[in-house]
């Protein structure tokens, strides 16, 4: 078996007295698509943000590609973040830059790639997300679905090994959800390692290799989508699914 690309060991995170993550030990293998589901407020976002150290764990460790992130200096953490793209619920595009500039900024400033090469790569990525005709648009003129696809292209521009998605379609109008999920599905087909927090059960069923059910600060279940949806083991998950699938 290949070495896992992400290993989480006894991860815990508290905000003051609020123990959001209590004790999480899981791993993600290279090329796997993990879908994390669970009730709102269960700590899914916090968990995802601990993976690239946007949130500092209270205890436990997060290993990425064999390196324990919690012991590294800021510079090395910055370097490893390049290899973990992140897509947010609210897109977080840079409103003062065009679509193209949004995508080119980090490759040029962080990796030192020259303008021509960065531009070329940005156009390739925009084609991949079907938005090359919007290269010179400003984010404010984009629909939610378009903005999220640009955000995905922007994250991909750093050539990450892993992509983290935090409810990428939750802020979208229903008719735009499909275009974003399609892009994600394609990405999965290409073999990208992905950790996706979502409420899109259809996506989970068809794309995920594993489903992690998270509630009350623990991963309550870790199973294949078929097993999880057809035969959830815990009462917590049964309860959650009955509410969601009604």
């Amino acid at each position: 078996m290949t070495k896992p690309i992400i290993e989480v060991k006894n991860l815990a995170k508290s905000f003051g007295k609020n123990e959001v993550l209590k004790d999480i030990t899981e791993q993600v293998d290279s090329g796997q698509v993990i879908v994390v589901i669970g009730p709102s407020g269960g700590g899914k976002s916090t968990f995802l943000r601990c993976l690239n150290l946007l949130e500092t764990p209270t205890s436990g460790e997060v290993d990425f590609d064999g390196e324990n992130l919690t012991t590294l200096d800021t510079k090395r953490v910055n370097e490893l973040r390049e290899e973990m793209g992140m897509v947010f619920q609210g897109f977080n595009l840079f409103p003062n830059m065009t679509v193209l500039e949004n995508i080119k900024l980090a490759p040029m400033k962080v990796k030192g790639i020259n303008d021509a090469a960065a531009t070329k790569r940005a156009h390739e990525l925009l084609k991949q997300v079907n938005l090359d005709d919007h290269a010179d648009a400003f984010p404010s003129s984009l629909s939610g679905g378009q903005a999220q696809r640009v955000a995905i292209a922007r994250a991909l521009a750093m050539d990450p090994k892993v992509m983290l998605f935090d409810e990428p379609t939750s802020a979208l109008d229903p008719e735009m959800v499909g275009e974003v999920l399609n892009v994600m599905q394609e990405l999965a087909n290409q073999g990208m390692t992905m950790v996706v927090v979502t409420h899109e059960m259809g996506f989970a069923k068809s794309v995920a290799d594993r489903v992690w059910f998270m509630a009350d600060g623990y991963i309550q279940e870790n199973n294949t989508p078929e097993a999880f949806f057809d035969n959830p083991q815990t009462e917590r998950a049964q309860d959650f699914l009955s509410k969601i699938l009604m």
């Binding site: 946007l54 390049e82 900024l105 994250a155």
Partner: peptide, 9 residues
């Protein structure tokens, strides 16, 4: 967060 997640210091 978006900037930091891209590896920017």
């Amino acid at each position: 967060e978006a900037a930091r997640s891209l590896g920017m210091s």
